[in-house]
Computed example of a mutant assay.
Amino acid sequence: MPLFDDMPLQLEDGDLQYLPHWLPAQTADQWLGGLLAETPWEQPQVHLHGRNYPVPRLVAWYGDPQASYGYSGLQHQPLAWTPLLASIRQQVEAQVAAPLNAVLLNLYRDGQDSMGWHSDDEAELGRNPLIASLSLGGTRRFDLRRKGQGRIAHSLDLEHGSLLVMRGTTQHYWQHQVAKTRRHCEPRINLTFRWIA
């Protein structure tokens, strides 16, 4: 489905906007290099059906001191903002015209790193959360499906330097994923900014 710059995807019961060229390429390259070099990546374990499994990507959680966050049975205490992440946050806040006090960084090392179907609907995010998702590095496909349905309804290729913004009731009615792929993929960092109530 082709999308135009600054054109919101017409998502029934949702509000999603994709800005494919949000960052100039040089800035995106600088941010990617800086984050790859300075981030203390972790690979937490999730407990499912009596066994522990490593999360299929590397993660880091940054935020204001009170912005602890729980998902998939994991509780994350925030690292302090670095100068680079504080600058990125300021520019994302200006774009979405809303305050953001935390960010989850995901490093997808190759096509076998992934994020399963989920909604960002944890209680700490409030009733209608705003999620601003910045992509740096290799392009990966982002899928959407209605809750309770198995088939993919929409897919977007999230490009280097792009910003995807989800707001309103999106998380009530929709799930999203970044699926595994056998295609060659360059490393990708995804920064999902949000407000922790």
Rank of each mutant, 00 (worst) to 15 (best):
L36K: 02
L36C: 03
E38I: 02
P40D: 14
E42D: 14
Q45P: 00
V46G: 10
L48K: 10
L48R: 13
N52L: 14
N52R: 14
Y53H: 13
P54G: 08
R57S: 02
V59R: 07
A60N: 03
A60R: 08
W61S: 01
W61R: 02
Y62S: 04
G63Q: 02
G63H: 02
Q66C: 07
Q66N: 11
S68P: 00
Y71R: 04
Y71A: 07
G73R: 11
G73Q: 12
L74Q: 12
Q75F: 04
Q75V: 10
H76M: 10
Q77R: 14
Q77P: 00
P78T: 09
L79Y: 13
L79T: 04
A80C: 11
T82M: 11
P83T: 09
L84K: 06
L84V: 14
L85K: 08
L85Q: 07
S87Q: 15
I88Y: 08
R89L: 05
V92I: 15
V92K: 07
V92P: 08
E93M: 14
A94G: 12
A94N: 12
A94V: 11
Q95L: 07
A97R: 15
A97K: 15
A98G: 10
P99L: 05
A102M: 01
V103L: 03
V103M: 05
L104V: 03
L104I: 01
L105A: 04
N106S: 04
Y108L: 00
G111M: 03
G111W: 01
D113G: 04
